[in-house]
Every structure is written in structure tokens, then in C-alpha cells.
Design a protein around this nucleic acid. Sequence first.
DNA 1: CCGACTGCTTGCAATTCGCAAGCAGTTGTC
DNA 2: GACAACTGCTTGCGAATTGCAAGCAGTCGG
Lengths: 169, 169
Amino acid sequence: MLETRRSGCPINLSLEVFGDKWSLLILRDMVFGGKRHFRELLRSEEGIASNILADRLKHLVELGMLTKTDDPTHKQKALYSLTEMSIELVPVFAQLGAWGRKWLPVTENLSIRAELLEKGGPALWERFMKELRAEHLGKGRPGPGPSVRAELQAAYERVAARNGRRASQ
Amino acid sequence: MLETRRSGCPINLSLEVFGDKWSLLILRDMVFGGKRHFRELLRSEEGIASNILADRLKHLVELGMLTKTDDPTHKQKALYSLTEMSIELVPVFAQLGAWGRKWLPVTENLSIRAELLEKGGPALWERFMKELRAEHLGKGRPGPGPSVRAELQAAYERVAARNGRRASQ
DNA sequence: CCGACTGCTTGCAATTCGCAAGCAGTTGTC
DNA sequence: GACAACTGCTTGCGAATTGCAAGCAGTCGG
């Protein structure tokens, strides 16, 4: 996990940050799943191993993609927060989700969020980012109306119920 | 390189396609560098090893991201072409490049293309994709005026000349 | 006081990576 | 027609990474 800095190309440098099979999934679970604790993240859809999760979290904190603080409600709990750097990945997630939805064998349950994000366009992405800033950085108001994540979650629940919850979370 | 299909989530499935350190760089060199032969791709900015390149090309062909044909001008040359699936990664590249340019220590030489792509917006991306279709799929006309890739390349040349070519290609 | 939960850590085997060298066939040049 | 340069790979091999299972010290709620 040493920083190689193979070249100064933006695509390459981005890949050196999250060009592995797990980092982006962790961020996905934090952004879209609202997960902020180690054990929550451990219960990912894909089943990440605890040593890999610990390693990636450490790495992401070092890179400035996450911050780690004590959870005031529990002396042993660590609270992970997004930073502006990772919040601004929302448009990347949106494009990636749209591409995956079009070309790969996604399940309906797990792609409904990507569909809504795609259809909402940049305006929705901005609303969502604003919410994440309020939640993770304590900056600004989350904006009026129901939260974007709650809407995405509700849509997922509807589809999952209709499909008999063949795929969880 | 076995297909695990850990979950039907579009982000996860996308990562299973190019969630490694090299696949996306190969595609970048084909899309933005116009490279189509093995030995061209071997001379990447980051220095990919020949066995890794061979493995990734094979994998990308199997997944439908590339096609491989004989180059009529040389009996030994293989010609790699983008498919519609990989051409539609252009918006992903654009968002990823924009994010990397903002948050990572990119060099000016290698990020000028990302800057132009970002400023051009979806309209430019569409023009570029149309060109790639004409070039790689033989479908449709490339559209009037100078090619997007030539414009990006020219911008790179200007910056590289001004900077005394401290970083190559 | 006890069982469940907290964020990890440790071993260990299996896979993957990355470097260097090499190889059979093809092409252009003199 | 000899020869060097180039074609897309392949092979070995040591090093790094991954993934699984188990465990651990401290904490919390009942």
C-alpha cells in the first residue's frame, strides 16, 4: 500500500487512491448506506474481511478521504466521517453506476439507487452532497424536504419488498 | 482473474471489470492516446509489464470491452479496438479526471486533457464518443471540424513545449 | 455478573504482481 | 539475401497482497 506515484496523470493518481477492489465499496457504503462504524462496514454486501477493512480505512484516513474520531456514545466505537474530498466523489459514483447499470448484469434491488441518481442528474447530486456535508462536516443546513439518502433508501425498500427481498440490504 | 460476481451492485460489478491498477490505464491510452497495438500500449506513462498487459488485454476482450483483430498492414500485428461498452466510459473518465485534478498532485502536462474535457462538458464528451465510434466501430461519420483527440493532443503539446517537456507524452 | 458487542490483530496459505529475460516469426534495409 | 529491428506475447521466480479463520482486551446493557 506504498504510494508509488507512477505518474502525474489524474486518472492514474485516482487509481492509486481507490484502484483496488475494496476502497470504493467502503466509500459507497458510507455515502449511500450511511454506515460510519467498523462493524457496520464489515457487514457489506460483498463480505469484506476485517483485516482488509482495517487496512483500507487506515489508508483512506492517511490520504485524507476519511477522518476518524471517537464516538461520544460509546467509548470503544470509532466514528468514520467523509471529507470534502470523498463527498465530491458523488458524481463519479453516479457516472460509474449509470455505466454499470447499462452494461453489467446488475440486480434490480441493488441498482435502483443508481437509476434514481442518474435520472436526478447534477442537481440531485448537488443536493445529496450538501446533505453529506451537513452530516459529516457539520457544515451548513441539509436543505428542506426529505433527505436524498432517505429517498434512495425508500425506493430500495419498495423494490426489495416487491421482489420478496431476494437480495438483502 | 476469475469472475467472482460478489454482488449485483453496479459499483461492485464495475470494479470487478476494471477495479485494478492497470485496466483503466490501458483503456485511457486507447481512448486518449489513440494506441491500438501491444507495443504501443507497453510504452505507457506508468510502465506496465508485458505479462500484465497481455493478461489484461485478454481479460478485457473476454469481457467485451475490446475486440482483437489482425492488422492488415502487418502479419504479426494485432489490432485492438474499443467497443461501444468501453467508448461509453468517456463520461466516467471525465468525472474521474476532474476529481483527480482537483484533489491529487497532478502534473500540468498530464492533466491538461482532463481540464479541457471537464470544461467541454457533456457536449464535448458526445462529440468525442462519436469520433471513437467512427474510428473503432466504423460506424457513422466522425463529424466536421478538427477531431477532439487532435485538439486534446495539441493542447498537451503546447503545455509540454512551454514546460520544456519535463514529463513525456 | 454475564453475554453480546466494540475495533481491530495475528497466522497462514493461496493468489497475484512485477521484473527480467527470452522466443519464433515478420519486416525493412543495405 | 543477410541482418538488425520489431511483432505479440510467454516463462521463471521472488516479493507483495489477499482472504479466511480465529482470537483478544476492553465496554455496555440487563
